[in-house]
Design a protein around this nucleic acid. Structure first.
Lengths: 239, 239
DNA sequence: CGGGAGGTTGAGAGGCCTCAACTCTTGTGG
DNA sequence: CCACAAGAGTTGAGGCCTCTCAACCTCCCG
């Protein structure tokens, strides 16, 4: 049930059987949760962290006029809101984008884990550090890339992250997000997202029907995005 | 020499004398570094992390056409690039914005610290988690706020962060950044930054001469920015 | 005194926004 | 089995925010 997380962590550094057992011990059995449900409310004081066993979630912040900004999309195997172990109060909300299975990890047990397993603690620390690196890439894309480059970058990122946990098929993957949600992630309007997707299709870079995205021309898509996956930290370097 | 860092950490949770000594032990004596110097290059493999003893630095990423996006401004007492302890390869560069004093902490010693002092390790983990929270606020500002709101938010953030380490005087602080640098931080052009600053002045929200920023009307500035300092995690809650 | 960096201002262009209408799909109930 | 509603996607038109280009000013320093 924690396979995707362990698969991802093992790409970065070796986990001992004891550590794997300790990691499994902090997690409650997964619960099934429907799509479009808040699993952690903005400003809440959290007492546990959540692991996505399957499905897609989004971190978001809401503005006073109701508009929304999604700040990260999380996928199967992501320890979303692990940061609340230390932040205590949530600076953003987390919602499901698809039906999900979610495991809960009480902060008390996570704190015990950091006392007894310093190496595993660093591996979890690294999870949050990669989140920050993803945020930085989004900042670069939002601040300095064209709308098309930004969308292309998001697709490249999701493809690589989903592939790392076995959620791709060939050059395609499922992305059951509405164009309105994509707009909230990119900081663009729904109408403009629609036109950008049309442009990617017209240029023969992707096939995109329903929730199925197929990347037809990876080299050109990655070039438009100036995509370099180093920040996802999927290479093996012991911590 | 690590006073600002310890002052900031102590706002969040109590540090024992042993922990303070351990923290000081990982740091080399500070070096003086001029303004506009790269202290960590993009894509470099880091073997140590850097503490800002005094001065201002910026994390940045460079695009293929030479344009730049600053993803965070770091101030006195910030453990900039602590994340490299776990990331190993830098996903961004770090440069000084002003003359700085910088202390270096070898990763080997930091790793030892996490083995022997789990609580202190969590405090350092929290430092990187706050970085991520700052990134998220920048994403919200960049994606969904007006240019004016974005600039106002940056000023509010810097004021609160500088105040937490005793670097403000009344409602003012030093911000020796060129408008071009501010543009790189906000994702705007230099010309537009100039016009936004002029608007803040015209509206009587700030006085801004040379590198001196004086906030005249904090309530209105914070309202324009929709600023809520919770994400900076300066409240006391034990980790 | 000249040069360079930074700041300021004007003018025109363009990317993205808003508003609005229309289409398509899906699910529900009569 | 069809009518209808609701949600999502698509397209057009006009407008605004921000960009680029360019000129000029100020200040500082060699």
């Amino acid at each position: 049930m924690t396979n995707a997380l362990i698969e991802k962590l093992s790409r970065r550094d070796q986990l001992s059987p004891v550590e794997i057992a300790a990691l499994k011990d902090v997690l409650d059995p997964p619960r099934a949760i429907a799509a479009n449900v808040d699993i952690m409310r903005e400003h809440a004081h959290a007492s546990h962290s959540l692991l996505i066993v399957s499905g897609l979630t989004a971190r978001y912040s809401t503005l006073s006029d109701g508009r929304r900004q999604i700040t990260e999309i999380n996928v199967t195997g992501d320890f979303v809101d692990l940061h609340s172990l230390l932040m205590k109060q949530m600076d953003h909300g987390v919602m499901t984008l698809t039906p999900c299975e979610i495991s809960s990890a009480p902060h008390s047990r996570l704190r015990d884990l950091t006392e007894k397993h310093p190496h595993l603690a660093r591996m979890l620390w690294l999870e949050t550090v990669v989140d920050a690196a993803i945020h930085r890439q989004w900042l670069v894309a939002m601040g300095r890339r064209s709308g098309l480059g930004h969308l292309a970058h998001l697709l490249c990122e999701l493809y690589v992250r989903l592939k790392a946990v076995g959620q791709t098929e060939g050059a395609g993957f499922d992305l059951p997000l509405t164009q309105s949600m994509l707009g909230d992630a990119l900081g663009l309007s729904t109408v403009h997202v629609n036109r950008l997707i049309a442009e990617l299709r017209r240029e023969g870079l992707v096939r995109w029907n329903q929730s199925r995205v197929e990347i037809i021309n990876w080299p050109r898509l990655a070039a438009i995005a100036e995509f370099d996956p180093t920040y996802l930290r999927l290479q093996n370097e012991p911590v």
